[in-house]
Each structure stands twice: as C-alpha cells, then as structure tokens.
C-alpha cells in the first residue's frame, strides 16, 4: 500500500523569485526519505507542491505513477497522502481527541444527509474511528490528554497530536515537516522510536524534512539535499554529511548571514 513518489524537473516561481528549480528525485515505496538543506532552501515549498497546496510552475510530480501536480490537496489526501505542518496547526479550543479525529475524515463513509439522520452505519463508523483515535493516543501515552483543549498542551505535544492526526488517515505517503523542531532531547528520542515502529508496523512511505541530523541519520534510508531551490546531491545521510558541497552550503550560508 505504501506509495512511490517521483519528481521530474519541478520548478516553482513566485513572480521573479525562483523558489525551486528543476528538482528531480524518486522515492521508492516503503522507504523513509530525508529532505534537508539550509533555511530557505525550499523544503517546505517542495512539500506544498507535493501535497497540492502549491502548483509547480513546471515539471511533474507523480504518486504511484499517476500525475499529482495540479490536483487540489483534498483530492490528494483522499488518495492517501497525509502531512504535518512546520508550525503546528491545531484547533486550539477543540479537544485533543477532536483534533486527532479530523484525520479520520476520509475514512468515514456517508454524506451530510446520512450524518444528519444519524443512520446506524455513520454512528458505527464514528464509534470505530473514535476507538482507534483513543488507541493511538493511548499508545502515545497521551490518553490523559484526550479530552483537554489542545491549547493546554505543550509545543512538543502539539507536534505529537499533528502526527497522530495525520496517521489516523492511514496514509500511504506521509510528509513530516520538521517534526523534531522545538522538541526536547527525550521527545526526539521518542519520535525516532515512533517512526521506527511505524515503519515496521505499517506499509507506508515517509518523507521527513528536518534540520536535526541525528534524527535524519537514525531514520532515513536516503536523503536529498536542497540549497537555494536546487538539488545539491542525493545519497545516504552519512554521504550527505561528509559531502563538501553540502558542508559549503551550510557554512556559506552562515558566512553570508555573518556578513549581513
């Protein structure tokens, strides 16, 4: 069920700003893939292109061999794509459980009339998805928080809730945008364990954008390094970390920042 992803010469321009230029790479089904690069390299923009939130200026993106670029994000989500956001976007006044349940939307059958009439199968599917969401929270050690409003949780837990929300949709392709940003050391360890468990238990392809190289090394099979919207190299995490071009991209950026 895990999906494959293929990008060919994907470019994205905003007016004159070239955010992405001719980015190509393939992600095989079932792998954990890393997307790294200095700030402003275009990683989030690339995620937005894949998830349908941005439409690439040119190039093609295909998921499991079917063209995805140009499809609205809601349709891609129904085809099995899920993502988290760099800045957690939860409904703060809704309960944690309600936030997670949102991820189950595509799995609930029936239209508005059936739900308004509360036909038995809608009630049954709602109960089932609720049980599943509570189980997810329970395994994450978050059962105590299920009924709390989301804004009473810490930043680290917000990131967690976003992840569980995405997982409740049972995605075939999961995009995680900086899942470790702002997490404590212990929380990062827990995240790594969670993703490893996901890989063994579910048939899923995962792409991770992350600055935390420890996490990238621990989890990813392959990485692509972006810099200024271009693909710099691809290989394993270890290869990327020792590649002189990658080191220069990071150091050069710092030097430029210092000069400014």
């Amino acid at each position: 069920m895990a999906a494959s992803l293929s990008l060919k010469d994907v470019s994205l321009h905003f007016g004159g700003v070239k955010v992405l230029q001719d980015v190509s790479f393939d992600v095989e089904p079932g792998v954990i893939f890393g997307l790294v690069g200095p700030n402003g390299a275009g990683k989030t923009s690339l995620f937005n292109c894949i998830s349908g939130h941005y439409r690439p200026s040119s190039g093609s993106i295909s998921i499991d061999g079917t063209e995805a670029s140009g499809s609205p994000p809601a349709r891609l989500a129904r085809l099995g794509l899920a993502r988290t956001f760099q800045h957690p976007a939860l409904q703060l006044n809704a309960s944690v459980l309600q936030n997670v349940l949102l991820g189950g939307h595509t799995r609930l059958p029936g239209g508005p009339v059936s739900w308004a009439l509360r036909l038995p199968y809608t009630a049954r599917s709602e109960r089932a998805i609720r049980t599943e969401a509570l189980e997810l929270l329970d395994r994450a050690g978050l059962a105590w928080a299920a009924d709390l409003p989301a804004d009473e949780l810490s930043h680290g837990l917000h990131k967690g809730v976003e992840l569980w929300r995405a997982l409740l949709s049972r995605p075939a392709l999961l995009l995680l945008d900086e899942p470790a940003a702002g997490l404590s050391h212990g929380e990062v360890e827990q995240l790594i364990a969670t993703v490893k468990r996901l890989r063994t238990e579910q048939d899923i392809t995962i792409i991770i954008v992350e600055h935390h190289m420890g996490l990238i090394s621990a989890l990813t099979d392959r990485v692509v390094v972006l810099d200024h919207g271009r693909k710099l190299m691809s290989g394993t995490a270890a290869e990327a970390q020792s590649d002189p071009r990658v080191i220069e991209a990071y150091i050069g950026k710092d030097a430029a920042d210092d000069a400014a």
């Binding site: 998830s51 349908g52 939130h53 609205p72 994000p73 809601a74 349709r75 989500a77 129904r78 899920a82 993502r83 956001f85 976007a89 409904q91 809704a94 309600q98 349940l101 949102l102 991820g103 939307h105 595509t106 929300r165 949709s169």
Partner: peptide, 19 residues
C-alpha cells in the same frame, strides 16, 4: 469537524481531505 476545520484553517482542512 469539517466545518470547524474550514473555519480555522483551510490549508489544514484540505490536507485532511476536506475540500
């Protein structure tokens, strides 16, 4: 949940499969 998601953040709603 779909109504609330659209009210709060359309980009998030869309990523959950809600048009």
């Amino acid at each position: 949940r779909a109504f609330a998601a659209v009210r709060e953040n359309e980009a998030v709603a869309a990523s959950m499969g809600i048009s």
